[in-house]
Computed example of a mutant assay.
Amino acid sequence: MRVALLMGGVSREREISLRSGERVKKALEKLGYEYTVFDVKEDFLKEVDQLKSFDVVFNVLHGTFGEDGTLQAILDFLGIRYTGSDAFSSMICFDKLATYRFLKDIVEIPDFIEIREFMETSPLGYPCVVKPRREGSSIGVFICESDEEFQHAIKEDLPQYGSVIVQEYIPGREMTVSILETEKGFEVLPILELRPKRRFYDYVAKYTKGETEFILPAPLNPSEERLVKEMALKAFVEAGCRGFGRVDGIFSDGRFYFLEINTVPGLTETSDLPASAKAGGIEFEELVEIILKSAFLKGEVRA
């Protein structure tokens, strides 16, 4: 099998994608796969036809272009098989507002509102969360306790994104649920509880070793564990996700509040999904092979 490994990209998550890609590359080497690395940059479309000579694309492009459905739509059009969710699901999940509207009757979501112009005070009171509609790795996310902090967050995000989400802040335990698709169906990996040493699980806490404590498996009683896994899997399946992914949320007072679905989650040495996989007895090389093989489960190019 010839594998095209896509890494890098043009989003603000480029460096994380390169880290994920380097780790996947080493795994492919150990597994004995024939592969070619494509460092995706702005001129990538000039060479996209080269991908037709490969059996499958292993996509580790995080953020805009690689995770928002754009790449997936191009690959579908060209009839090229790839890892992860299809164009529609990727588009929905990358846009948090679209995700919330799509899943509002399926899972419990903290109150939210979209704003497109400057406001002096939060319409949802304090504390609240301000975040971009379309972004990853907690880039542009602020927890605001006052008008001053809220105004700062809006001034930072609105010029860059044009639209931001203001969301109710739910105090509780940050949890992430990783899901793999295998021949047996969807497998929910051990729940990971995140205990960042910073205000919340932001970009620095995600990708700096020692900045977040991983609790695996999360200390939950059987009924709580069942609830979190069921809600995460329900969101993942309802959104039409495939292959692999991660559902993030807050566990508070016996309830699981959905926050987002990551359709191309990080595969770095500090990333959540590999940690959950290892806790479930799946070493990194095996994880890479499971993700790779999941692209073939339907027996045809996804469309």
Rank of each mutant, 00 (worst) to 15 (best):
V3C: 08
A4D: 08
L5N: 04
G8S: 07
R12P: 00
E13L: 09
R14I: 04
R14V: 05
S17C: 13
L18S: 07
R19W: 00
V24Q: 05
K25Y: 02
K26A: 15
K30F: 00
Y33V: 10
E34A: 12
Y35S: 03
D39A: 00
F44C: 12
L45Y: 15
D49N: 15
F54G: 02
F54Y: 14
F54R: 03
V56W: 01
V56R: 02
V56F: 06
F58E: 11
N59V: 02
V60D: 03
V60L: 07
F65T: 02
D68K: 05
D68Y: 03
L71S: 01
Q72F: 00
G79D: 13
R81P: 01
R81S: 06
S85V: 08
S85H: 10
D86P: 12
D86A: 10
F94S: 03
K96L: 09
D105C: 05
V107T: 07
I109Q: 09
D111S: 14
D111K: 15
I113M: 13
I115A: 03
I115L: 07
I115E: 02
T121M: 04
L124Q: 07
Y126Q: 07
V129W: 01
P132V: 03
I139H: 10
G140P: 02
V141I: 14
C144A: 14
C144P: 10
Q151G: 11
H152A: 11
A153W: 04
I154E: 01
I154S: 01
E156K: 15
E156P: 06
E156F: 15
L158G: 10
L158C: 12
L158P: 10
L158R: 07
Y161R: 10
G162N: 12
V166A: 13
Q167G: 11
I170A: 11
G172I: 10
E174D: 14
T176R: 06
S178L: 01
L180A: 08
F186I: 10
V188P: 06
I191H: 04
I191A: 08
L194R: 04
R195F: 00
P196W: 03
R198A: 13
D202R: 06
Y203W: 10
A205H: 07
T208R: 13
T208G: 10
K209T: 10
L216H: 05
L220W: 02
L227H: 08
M231N: 12
G243L: 04
R246Y: 07
V247G: 07
F251G: 07
D253I: 00
F256S: 06
F256K: 03
Y257I: 01
Y257V: 01
E260V: 09
N262W: 08
P265G: 12
L267C: 04
T270Y: 04
P274T: 03
G280E: 09
G281Q: 10
G281Y: 04
L297P: 07
E300Y: 12
